[in-house]
Every structure is written in structure tokens, then in C-alpha cells.
Amino acid sequence: QFPGAPIQVGRQRLADGGPLHALVINNKVSNVCAGGDGVGNAELVCNAVAQELDLPNGASSVLPSSTGVIGWRLPAQELATDVVPKAAKALQMESALAAAKAICTTDRWPKVRSQTLSNGARVVGIAKGAGMIEPNMATMLSYIMTDAIIPKATLQTMLTEAVNGSYNSISVDGDESTSDTVALVASNVVSNTDEAEFRDSLRVVCQGLAQDIVRNGEGTGHVLRVHVLKFPGTDAEARRLGRHVVNSPLFKCAVSGNDPNTGRLAAAIGSFMGKFKNDENI
């Protein structure tokens, strides 16, 4: 409900329905709650990228993302004049690792996952995120690239499914953010891609990156995996139950202290069911 300026621009890009030809990502400054024209600053950087890469559709085909400190104003003119030209000259096709490293903030290591399909098509994803991690996305950026030829509407459906089962099912500290982005872009090069195989590969990449984010979380000493079985409700409600359990301070303390106190687990489950499913007999 309170997105940062890059998210506002990105939503408009998606609503317009045009193709995306470039992603521009900065760290250190989130372009959120900084005063001034945050949207205008994001557009200024997008325009510089479009000019530098000579994109036919201009800034409308550039998706911006920012991550970093909230409340600092984006140095848009400096980025457009000095940084974007250098970044354009450094573009390469050998590896996504450099980009994964560049978007890190408090991350302890870069996150890259990939899958190769039977027809040679690839799905490669990078992500950043360590703090303010909570389902409903997080202060997290993830970019997934593929050379497979798959219709845009089909990709959107597959991405939604993959995100719900990965990024929207993790938590580190229970705090949501204003800068969440997951983007899936396709260069449409490799034909004859089996859609079921692609869906599975996309799911594996997203789940792997989501797990990496949790393992890399700020102050993380333990990683929990919550399986919700035979739940008398929807998948969305089951995810809320899982979130309620892993965000329970008492249960977290038990896990952190290596104390197998199943009573605290039962209490967390009972607390959720009492609040949201009190008509069920558990």
C-alpha cells in the first residue's frame, strides 16, 4: 500500500503492457520517503539508460529498482551522467554473478541460481535481500532471465505461482518493505520449450533463491522449514499460519536456544487458529 518510487514506475510499465528491454538497479539508496520527485528521479535514470543503450521505445522499456536506505534522496543526476555510461560499457554476457554482487546491500554473499532445460533453454535468477524479509514479498530484489520462447501471459501465470511458493513464503524478521521486485524477462531465442518443464525449472530457481535469502538473513543462526499439512483452509491461509509460527518470538527463542520446546510450537499454532480459524476443532 505504500510503495517506493521505483515500484510506482514499474507498476505503470506493467500496466502499459509494453516490452521491457533493460533493467536498471541501484543499491545504497532506496528512493523512498526522501522528499522531492522520487518518480521523476527514477524516470531520469531510466531515460539515461534508454539513451545509452539506444532503446527504440525509450525509457518506457526500462524497469527501475532501488534498494538501500529509506529517506535518502536518489542522486539521479549523478547516476544518469556518470554511473549509467560506465555500467553500459561494462555489460557482458558471460555471467550474472557480477550483477548479483552489485545489488547486494547487507547480504553476506551474492545469490545466483540456474536451470538448463532439455532443449537448451536456460532459466537464470539473481536476488538480494537479508533484512526486512517477510512474505508478501520483502525488501528483496530478484531478477529471472530466460532465453525460452513462451507467451507473456503464460510467463506471468507461471511467475505468480512460483512467487507464491517461494518469495511469498519466507520470513526473517517479520518486516515488510517498500521496494519489493521480482521480474521475469525473456529474450525469446530458444523455441520448442516444454511449458511444464519450464514451470518446474522456474519454481526450482525461485525456491532456491528464496532459501538463500533466509540463510543469508541478518543475524540468522537457524533456518526453519514449516510444512502445513491437512489445513482446513486455503493455501493463502496456510501460508499465514506458517508466517505466524516462524514469527512467534517465543518459538524463535526456543529454536535459537536449541530447546526442543514443542509447547511453544503448539501455542503459536493455537494462537493463529484462535484468531483466524476459531470455528475449527484442533
Rank of each mutant, 00 (worst) to 15 (best):
L241M: 11
T106E: 11
L117F: 11
H227T: 14
K252D: 01
S191K: 10
L91A: 13
G242L: 09
P56G: 07
N188W: 04
G217A: 11
T160W: 00
I282C: 09
S271V: 02
N261R: 04
T157K: 15
A88C: 15
S60T: 11
K230E: 15
F276E: 14
G131E: 06
E218P: 02
A238R: 02
R199H: 13
W109K: 15
G233E: 10
L202I: 14
A48H: 08
G18E: 07
L241I: 09
Q77D: 08
A22N: 05
R243M: 11
N26I: 06
S166I: 05
S118W: 03
L53D: 06
A42T: 03
G125M: 12
S142R: 04
C253H: 02
S66K: 08
G125W: 11
M93N: 14
G270H: 10
S95G: 04
L79A: 04
S166T: 06
D147Y: 01
D107M: 12
E197A: 15
P232W: 10
P75V: 04
T193S: 14
T220G: 00
R203G: 10
I269C: 15
R240K: 15
V24S: 02
V124F: 00
S114L: 11
R203K: 12
I133Y: 06
G217N: 05
R203F: 10
L184T: 04
L44T: 07
N31L: 09
V9Y: 06
C253N: 09
V29T: 08
L91M: 12
G174F: 12
K86Q: 14
R264I: 00
I149D: 03
G36S: 03
N57T: 04
G270M: 06
S256H: 00
C46Q: 09
A99W: 01
T81Y: 04
T67W: 01
V182T: 11
A162D: 15
I103G: 12
N188R: 08
I150N: 02
L20K: 01
A102Q: 06
G40S: 05
S256V: 00
M140Q: 05
A99P: 04
I7G: 01
N168R: 06
V204Q: 14
G208V: 02
A153V: 09
T157M: 09
F251D: 00
V226S: 03
I150K: 01
R239Q: 10
A87R: 10
